[in-house]
């Protein structure tokens, strides 16, 4: 029973157009990344097959195999075609090893780690931010604010080394590294969650302070609502909206954070393979994986953006907040 039916149809047509526009922008972004990578690959110093041990005959065969003998624009078209079929390319160094292999092998692990980190971050961040916001300028606020500031200032690899040292080496509470059993997942996920948790806490605190100044909170207080209802339905529901905008960047933070966390904790995920291929200077593999990551994040941010639009009634209807 939405009000003003005729209006809704008009508005939903408008939001369909907006969705269409966003898809176009997303595709353009993906295209820019792909083109950039393609050109970048030509700029990488040295030919992958210029190793003197490779005979000219073999080299020619390899060139033909990878299509490097064709004109540049044909290579480009072929490259885009491969990408659109979700084929992210192969290693030119280790014959037979492809980016898709590595993704198939490592991505499920990374995704699981990321999901745990995401849940932990939401939990810590919400808790810390809410406490700080509700106790504005009190002692709890000061501690929480300091913790959150620390959380965004300490790089995750330092934190990882520290946690590993204290909780694994010294106290022996958790395994030092690896991915065997549930307990091994704790330290990597915790470390990975710190930066997003701290960011959520900071955003939520500021947002709660802003909401508390609004007259509708005064109205709700005059109603004599129970504290939990006031907190959940009036304060948090409105404060959380501004935190939702961070969900996209949070996915980026967790993904890039996983590169170092997986390396330090020796988690067999995509991030570890990625860093390894950087160390190995396996450029084509690195580029292929980078394109995959970029595409993944671009799509994730797009989805988050759409979800945000669905959650805020003001945006849902008009496509822009009333100011």
């Amino acid at each position: 029973m939405r009000p003003a039916r005729s209006k809704v149809s008009l508005q939903s047509r408008g939001s369909l157009w907006r969705l269409f526009g966003r898809v176009i922008v997303m595709l353009a972004t993906l295209w820019v990344v792909a083109t950039f990578t393609f050109l970048g690959m030509r700029l990488i110093p040295g030919d992958p097959f210029s190793d003197p041990k490779v005979t000219p005959q073999v080299r020619e065969n390899l060139y033909r195999k990878y299509g490097l003998d064709k004109p540049l624009y044909k290579q480009y078209v072929r490259y885009l075609g491969n990408l659109s079929r979700l084929d992210f390319g192969v290693s030119y160094v280790q014959l037979g090893r492809s980016v898709n292999d590595i993704i198939a092998q490592g991505f499920p692990v990374s995704a699981e780690l990321g999901l745990w980190a995401l849940l932990l971050a939401l939990f810590w961040g919400t808790l810390l931010g809410t406490l700080a916001g509700l106790h504005h300028e009190g002692r709890i606020d000061r501690y929480a604010t300091f913790l959150a500031a620390l959380g965004v200032s300490v790089p995750s690899f330092i934190l990882a080394l520290f946690f590993q040292h204290v909780f694994a080496f010294r106290l022996g509470l958790f395994p030092v590294a690896g991915w065997e059993g549930g307990i091994a997942r704790f330290l990597p996920a915790l470390t990975l969650s710190i930066l997003p948790a701290a960011t959520i806490a900071r955003l939520l605190r500021a947002s709660i302070l802003d909401v508390l100044r609004q007259d509708y909170i005064q109205t709700a207080r005059i109603k004599g609502l129970a504290h939990t209802r006031l907190l959940v339905h009036h304060i948090l529901r409105n404060a959380a909206l501004s935190v939702l905008t961070y969900l996209g960047p949070m996915v980026v933070n967790i993904t890039t954070g996983s590169f170092v966390i997986e390396t330090i904790f020796n988690v067999p995920g995509l991030g570890k393979h990625y860093v390894q291929s950087i160390y190995d200077r396996d450029y084509t593999l690195v580029m292929g994986t980078t394109v995959f990551y970029a595409a993944l994040l671009i799509v994730a941010m797009f989805l988050v953006d759409i979800a945000y639009g669905l959650l805020d009634p003001r945006i849902r209807a008009f496509g822009a907040k009333e100011r």
């Binding site: 820019v32 990488i44 980026v252 890039t256 580029m287 980078t290 671009i298 941010m301």
Partner: peptide, 24 residues
């Protein structure tokens, strides 16, 4: 704004990574 929107969608960190790989 339109052209910036396209570029803005690329994760910042991935750009830096790509450049570091390409340029060394």
């Amino acid at each position: 704004m339109r052209s910036v929107e396209v570029l803005y969608g690329i994760p910042y960190i991935m750009v830096v990574l790509l450049l570091a790989v390409i340029l060394g």
